[in-house]
Design a protein around this nucleic acid. Structure first.
Lengths: 108, 108
DNA sequence: ATTTTATCCCTCGACATTCGAGGTAAGGGA
DNA sequence: TCCCTTACCTCGAATGTCGAGGGATAAAAT
């Protein structure tokens, strides 16, 4: 019995979104999603890192080793040009899905 | 390479919803979801039937054999009392998730 | 000086769910 | 008779999430 916090598929979109402004390292990505959602969304590391590799494999993000604010080694991710495009695609897909589900859920 | 039409987890909620008014047989459930969403959501039979068993196992729906409008044998499903409660739970969960995701996606 | 805590990375196996492709059966029309 | 449609069901592959692990190092506490 396992409750899925995140709906499958939305994590990729969320990651792309929080990278839209500046590059972030993995840990910070999870923190930011959690903070922006006011703790409604918690991204476990077991979901996060696989997702980051997935996105990188697909060419939507790039990574580079650097130094974190706390002086630790950290891998910084940033959106690629294709990634920006993909963010739009996913965002629109999400909107369409929400509309579709609302149509069903609000059918009298 | 497989595009997930439905987000994982939403199918249960949608099924419960379309059963809210009247009992329906499986085939009709899929049709109604598709129609209400204006073809945005397509429920394949490979997703539908496992979901129906799942919901029945959890005590959210009950089934009974009957006769379809087209004079064929069909299994009619209807919501249980617990199922009605569950529909509320899932509906609220979905709303909360939408809010949370919107907070992230609309962060400037 | 040593221990603890916090940050940051990663991997693994278990699990749930979706999906496409298959298979069965029976009604109704050509 | 043959085929189309309706309606049921099952299977294996693929995907993604999760919790529980493990490792390394910086900073803080003891």
């Amino acid at each position: 019995m396992q409750k899925t916090e995140l709906l499958q598929g939305t994590l990729d979109m969320l990651i792309l979104k929080v990278l839209q402004r500046d590059p972030l390292h993995g840990f910070a990505i999870a923190e930011r999603i959690q903070r922006l959602s006011e703790d409604a969304l918690k991204v476990g590391e077991g979901s996060l890192y696989p997702a980051l590799y997935r996105l990188q494999d697909r060419g939507w993000i790039e990574s580079e080793w650097g130094q974190s604010e706390n002086n630790r080694r950290a891998k910084y991710y940033k959106l690629t040009k294709v990634g920006r495009k993909q963010l739009e695609v996913e965002s629109e897909g999400w909107d369409r899905l929400c509309v579709a589900i609302r149509q069903v859920m609000q059918s009298a």
